[in-house]
Nucleic acid binder design. Structure first.
Lengths: 242, 242
DNA sequence: GAGTGGTCTAGACCACTGC
DNA sequence: CAGTGGTCTAGACCACTCG
């Protein structure tokens, strides 16, 4: 009856942990190739197969992207295939029209009770708030209100948002060095208030999806809290269950 | 410039395909152990590592469950850990109270336009329709209307549903030999109609989540279509984005 | 202790990319 | 052609379960 060591960690997980550190510390940058498997095996003093298994897990978590014959790359929100990766809203028809982001406002404020709790900062700390509209085929469908920790997002302006082509997360990554890894969404049905109804071009009181998202970067650190109101007249939220 | 053979399939995928067939054909049953990796390697004439990789993928797809020291098992909805595997609704508080299913009605009908399309059967074919309520801590939260292909679900009765302890899918698996593999949910916000409002104990016109689910068994064959109306006053739909 | 899955290695060869 | 990831093998050893 051994003490049943509760902390057994296979070698490939230790390697993975080292590689995670290389990502977090910024040694490897989004969009760039990481060293080859052989090279990493040499650096870490393990076999190629062990490095491989570490990379396997990280690829499954969308941290890395393998490309046969080319190399292994750090996942990036600039990659066209990753744009709107977290957006689950789909138009009712078969059209694959992709959405356009229209920034409305951007201001600085102090974190309230809820924002500070969700973002794991102190109440009163500076935050940036962004309001933006999402259009599908020129029609307004989503209004988002986005809360960002002020310390990370110093210098964020409405102009910057308006000038940017592509997703918010690709901007965050390129300008603020912040990579969004995973998110949790809490979905409820709510009534459209007056202001939202006007913007989305629906009647006041119409049912909307309320989608609250908390987004995390490396180390499960929350760095974005947003609430979106989705008009589901001509779109729906698609979720695949496995 | 070779023709770039578009149909390269590695050995482990062929093994996987053979194992899928063993599952579909009923050679291996939900909850039972499959042969050991060594044994399968022998049967298929490949190395253990190749079998292993096939099993890896199937475990990732929730078709098989590995248990170190014991063996590899066919995933089952009877497994307590898989109960309500597809239900994403969570109570607002931290309570982990698990839901109770209350069957209301069960009748036989002919498939209409939409049901036949979704279930890939002919219009007019027999279907079974089930209406049931889902309660959390004795409070009604979800009303489901469930459409099932009559050919598969012959003999389904309200009594059978009422007598069953556990999830619907565990009943389907045990009594009709049907294993649900994956599902797609389409979510919209709608107003509560009179009848639904009464059952869910909310006011008419209140916003509800409309969750349409199509569930698939082996071979991506659709075998269930359901529409649920969720009251999100004290619960929310939780989705993890990776 | 026997049997199972889990890890790790070393080496060979295949498929794909780009120069 | 060289370099990369992808597959496959064979064998050794570790961790876990059960009788």
């Amino acid at each position: 009856m051994t003490p049943a060591s509760p902390t057994f960690s296979p070698l490939y997980r230790q390697i993975k942990s080292l590689m995670l550190h290389a990502l977090e510390s910024g040694e490897w940058h989004p969009g760039n190739a990481i060293p080859s498997e052989q090279e990493l095996a040499g650096r870490f003093g393990v076999s190629q197969g062990t490095v491989r298994k570490a990379i396997d897990e990280m690829a499954a978590e969308n941290l890395l992207v393998r490309k046969q014959g080319k190399g292994t790359f750090v996942a990036s929100h600039n990659d066209p295939r990753a744009l709107f990766r977290f957006l689950r809203l789909v138009p009712e028809g078969e059209g694959l029209s992709h959405p356009v982001s229209v920034p409305l406002e951007c201001w600085r404020a102090k974190a309230g009770q809820e924002a500070s709790r969700v973002l794991a900062i102190d109440a009163g700390d500076p935050i940036n708030i962004v309001r933006r509209l999402l259009k599908f085929s020129a029609k307004p469908v989503v209004v988002d209100e986005i809360y960002l920790p002020g310390e990370i997002f110093q210098g964020l302006t409405l102009e910057m948002l308006q000038d940017w082509q592509g997703s918010l997360y690709s901007l965050f990554e390129s300008r603020f060095g912040l990579r969004m890894i995973r998110a949790e969404e809490r979905i409820r049905a709510v009534e459209a208030d007056r202001a939202t109804a006007d913007i989305l071009n629906v009647k006041e009181g119409v049912p909307l999806l309320s989608v609250e998202r908390v987004t995390y970067t490396y180390g499960d650190r929350p760095v974005e809290w947003r609430r979106g109101l989705y008009s589901t007249a001509e779109h729906y939220y698609l979720n695949e269950l496995n």
